[in-house]
Write a protein that binds this DNA or RNA. Structure first.
Length: 140
DNA sequence: GCCAACGTTGGC
DNA sequence: GCCAACGTTGGC
């Protein structure tokens, strides 16, 4: 089981939209590092959903339902997408400020490399963020 | 809306 | 293969 964080601008694809859709394929990744992370995702991995630019906060948890496959929105075979399904909304969204001020979250990619749209998290980091959001995942 | 940081592209 | 130029992202 791995943990990830994905970013999206809510004006492009918001968590609320995602909830309504019940699932989505994560397209639009055009960065090799992010792409490589996408390829590493396994079915059942948990993914934090972060709103960039507007809000700048972690708003929900999703789960990988289908591993990387070619991006259907482009002919360019370099790019892949994964399928995600929303799991739970975070009660108290965890802001970038919160993350930056937490001593154990200083080294996550969201802080160090703000432009990377798909980044790995350790289990510990994942759990800290959930806890800060006052959110528990059923059965975990 | 600005600008710094970063990644990518393309000329040499 | 290097590096300057350019485009994009995202925090402020």
């Amino acid at each position: 089981m791995s943990y990830w964080l994905v970013k999206q601008e809510p004006s492009k694809y918001s968590w609320e939209q995602f909830i309504q859709d019940k699932k989505t394929f994560w397209d639009g990744v055009r960065n090799y590092q992010a792409r490589n992370n996408l390829k590493e995702m396994k079915k059942g991995d948990q993914v934090l959903f972060y709103h960039s630019v507007v809000g700048k906060e972690v708003v929900g948890v999703a789960i990988v339902t289908k591993e990387a496959y070619p991006d259907p929105t482009t002919d360019d075979e370099r790019w892949v997408v994964v399928d995600l399904k929303p799991v739970i909304s975070i009660k108290n969204p965890v802001t970038l400020e919160d993350i930056k001020s937490h001593p154990e979250l200083q080294s996550i990619a969201l802080v160090k490399q703000s432009r990377l749209s798909v980044s790995p998290l350790t289990e510990k980091e994942f759990n800290i963020i959930l806890k800060m959001g006052n959110t528990k995942i059923k059965g975990v």
